[in-house]
């Protein structure tokens, strides 16, 4: 059963196989937690939101449209749960996230980023530098980076998941990697 596709696991669970639900949750626990964390940047809150997201998904499993992607649907629930959490408990942060958009530039106006120099990729502490750099990105940029590069969603799926126009997602992605590069290129502060 571990090799079943999401839809097969879902079907099995709805037919009474409890193990199928366990497998589905295990499959997406780390990605969903990582996604929520990329939004919230707080482990404790991300844990609570992740729990809520899976619980909401479970409550609505019977209503899930099997023609659609389960993965996209689950991430969409996680995103909405994170936003609801912020609205209730951290309204200032929620407001900042909603307003934080440098554009609405047309994607064609944003320069195509050039390839990264090897120097960046060869840095010894690249992982920790990159984690810090990602923390500095705005949440909307961070979520697109996470979904595109870590979870391998394409732009159309991200657009559907975040309920944003496709061009907005593309421009946001481009700006995100430009910003990321600037942060990585910036001289390190002497400590």
């Amino acid at each position: 059963m571990e090799n079943y596709a999401d839809e097969q696991l879902l079907e099995s669970y709805l037919n009474g196989e409890k193990e199928a639900l366990d497998l589905l949750i295990k499959r997406y626990l780390k990605p969903i937690f990582g996604f929520v964390f990329s939004y919230i940047k707080n482990s404790e809150d991300a844990e609570e939101i992740t729990q809520d997201a899976f619980f909401k998904a479970w409550k609505n499993l019977k209503k899930f449209d099997k023609e659609k992607s389960f993965k996209t649907w689950l991430f969409s629930i996680a995103k909405n749960t994170a936003l609801d959490f912020l609205k209730k408990k951290k309204p200032l942060l929620f407001s900042a996230i909603e307003k934080d958009e440098k554009e609405n530039s047309i994607i064609g106006e944003i320069p195509e980023p050039s390839p990264l120099p090897d120097e960046i990729l060869n840095r010894a502490d690249l992982t920790s530098e990159l984690n810090l750099a990602m923390d500095k990105l705005s949440p909307k940029y961070r979520e697109v980076i996470f979904l595109y590069y870590k979870e391998q969603f394409n732009f159309r799926e991200i657009s559907e998941l975040l309920n944003e126009p496709l061009d907005t997602i593309k421009s946001r992605h481009r700006r995100a990697i430009i910003d990321l590069r600037e942060i990585l290129d910036a001289p390190k502060e002497e400590g």
């Binding site: 990729l121 984690n131 996470f146 590069y149």
Partner: peptide, 21 residues
Amino acid sequence: MPDNFQTLLNHYNPPEAPDNL
């Protein structure tokens, strides 16, 4: 989009979910 951004982002490690989640 330059391919080495994927190589870069492969190094990105968000925190792991707690064991008991």
